[in-house]
């Protein structure tokens, strides 16, 4: 259970707060730029949390008690993306945001681009960590080898 809790915190609760905070900042900025005269009721204040929850919950598909293979992770990542797309489309549909087909397509593409960008950034970060670890590993072995040669 504690393993699930730690997964829940790292992959669902933490992203929920980050997404909610980002949307809370993005909405007023974009609103001031594109539709500065728009007025909202109090119910609008719930939208960042609702979007945050809807887009962070799909991360639960990546949970597993056993170690997942790379193929399984890839498949689950695709399922996560599909669920996020579905959640975003559903929320937009409920809010009557789809005035025409091009709006729907642009929402789908935007979600896809954000998801792929986040994955790419995480991968590049991991690649950098892996390279640093390999360099340090080689250094450690060289030190050991020189010690052996001195004996």
């Amino acid at each position: 259970m504690s393993e699930f809790r730690s997964f829940l915190f790292r992959n669902t609760i933490l992203p929920f707060f980050i997404i909610t905070a980002c949307i809370s900042i993005a909405i007023p900025i974009l609103g001031f730029i594109f539709i500065p005269d728009q007025k909202f009721g109090y119910e609008a204040l719930f939208s960042p949390a609702i979007i945050g929850l809807a887009t962070s919950l799909p991360s639960l598909v990546k949970y597993s008690k056993r170690e997942l293979s790379v193929t399984e992770i890839k498949i689950r990542s695709i399922i996560q993306l599909i669920l996020i797309e579905a959640m975003v489309l559903l929320l937009n549909y409920i809010n009557h945001a789809f005035t025409n087909f091009s709006v729907l397509i642009s929402v789908v593409i935007t979600v896809l681009v954000i998801y792929v960008t986040v994955m790419a950034v995480l991968y590049l970060n991991d690649k950098h960590t892996a390279e640093t670890l390999t360099k340090e590993l080689v250094k450690m072995k060289k030190q050991q080898l020189s010690r052996n040669n001195n004996k």
Binding site: A130, M140, Q144
Partner: peptide, 16 residues
């Protein structure tokens, strides 16, 4: 055995 690791590369999801 860390001494028998040749290199490290990224796997997905924060794993290596």
């Amino acid at each position: 055995n860390v001494f028998l690791v040749e290199s490290i590369s990224p796997a997905l999801n924060g794993r290596f």
